[in-house]
């Protein structure tokens, strides 16, 4: 697809209006909304009031399968991640607060580029789990935590480039601490002020860009 030579320059208002439209499209009985509203709502509806590794594991497995985050391909990845979560909260409420704290607290290491989970078939240490963790946080906090993945990074950058060119560096989006700072700033600049609607916008742009309209 040829890039548009002179794209229309947007304002925060334009993007907000596009995000609201994305939200309207996605909440209207699409496979996306069915998965989100039925499956995930049920999975996170019953709150954990004492640490329950089985419930956390079930949630993680469903998120991993739905979003193809490929965590199941590493050994002991889920076990490591469950232990990691336990350090940040034994109940849903505590862990949810840790996710919210992470957005403002620089010393919080709930998400960390350096923290690795699981091992590969050869026994080497595997990668970070930022995408899966952020999605767990997104559902646990009822969409008050932004999603971090390659699609969100790509379209956050594209959207921001259009209305505020070069205000963010693309490479900064790969550093999770910087990413979450940037995503909050962009969310405010765009006047969306709602991570769910911002995610709807970025997700829908990604699907259309990939020609995947069956979602």
């Amino acid at each position: 697809m040829k890039k548009i030579k002179n794209p229309i320059k947007t304002t925060g208002k334009d993007i907000k209006s596009l995000a609201l439209l994305a939200n309207k499209i996605l909440t209207n009985e699409t496979p996306y909304s069915i998965t989100k509203n039925l499956i995930f709502k049920k999975l996170f509806q019953k709150k954990i009031n004492m640490f329950d590794a089985d419930v956390i594991r079930s949630r993680l497995i469903v998120i991993d399968a739905t979003y193809s985050t490929n965590f199941n391909k590493r050994y002991y990845g889920f076990d490591d991640l469950i232990k990691h979560f336990k350090e940040f909260g034994k109940t849903d409420s505590e862990l949810s607060n840790s996710f919210k704290e992470f957005l403002n607290e620089t010393s919080n290491k709930l998400l960390d580029n350096e923290k690795l989970f699981g091992i590969s078939k050869k026994g080497d240490v595997k990668g970070h789990g930022l995408s899966l963790i952020s999605k767990y946080g997104y559902y646990l906090t009822k969409y008050k935590f932004p999603i971090y993945d390659s699609l969100a990074k790509e379209f956050l950058w594209k959207v921001n480039q259009n209305f505020d060119k070069n205000s963010i560096k693309k490479k900064d989006l790969s550093d999770c601490k910087k990413y979450f700072k940037i995503v909050q700033e962009v969310n405010d600049k765009l006047m969306i002020k709602d991570f769910d609607k911002l995610d709807n916008l970025l997700w829908l742009l990604g699907q259309i860009n990939k020609g995947l309209l069956s979602q």
């Binding site: 596009l18 499209i25 259009n162 829908l204 259309i208």
Partner: peptide, 19 residues
């Protein structure tokens, strides 16, 4: 096959150079 909202979204997203 596509809702008018989806068509509108794709049109705008293309005009803005996002897709």
């Amino acid at each position: 096959y596509l809702s008018s909202d989806t068509i509108k979204f794709i049109k705008k997203a293309n005009e803005y150079g996002f897709v």
